[in-house]
């Protein structure tokens, strides 16, 4: 059965962009941002994710968190596809500045210039950044 909010908002689809600019584990922003992303997809909204600045570290391969006693939430990025979240964009300048390439990343992404990201951002209805 549909939740009341689903009925109320039926048919209303907005473009939501999540701009991830912070590294994981040092602060909780990356993890709690991911929670909003998943809920937004559950509302059948048009969701895209941008990884820029230290946000590119969120999707670095090979995260092993046993030693710090925290949950490794990076596999969730791989699961995004299952929620129909396929628009993942990474800022090339941020990758370059940090000595990373697309090969270092846990998911398939589209690497973009800041000018391209600016165009995409401009088309959004709602932009959230944590």
């Amino acid at each position: 059965m549909a939740e009341p909010w689903e009925e109320e908002n039926e048919g209303k689809v907005k473009k939501f962009m999540f701009i991830n600019r912070k590294a994981p584990y040092g602060t909780i922003y990356a993890l709690e941002s991911l929670e909003v992303v998943l809920i937004t997809a559950a509302f059948d909204q048009d969701v895209s994710l941008v990884f820029t600045d230290d946000g590119v570290f969120q999707i670095k391969k090979g995260q092993t968190t046993a030693g710090i006693g925290m949950k490794n939430f990076s596999p969730t990025y791989r699961a995004l596809e299952g929620y129909d979240i396929e628009k993942l964009y990474v800022d090339k300048e941020s990758l370059d500045a940090r000595g990373l390439t697309a090969e270092d990343l846990i998911v398939d992404v589209e690497v973009m210039s800041r000018a391209q990201l600016a165009d995409l951002m401009n088309e959004q209805d709602v932009v959230m950044s944590f």
């Binding site: 909010w5 109320e8 209303k12 907005k14 809920i39 509302f43 959230m128």
Partner: peptide, 16 residues
């Protein structure tokens, strides 16, 4: 969190 998403859908502006 659905309440946040709903605010994004229903409001003219979401200010963070």
């Amino acid at each position: 969190l659905g309440q946040l998403v709903e605010a994004g859908i229903e409001c003219d502006r979401l200010v963070t």
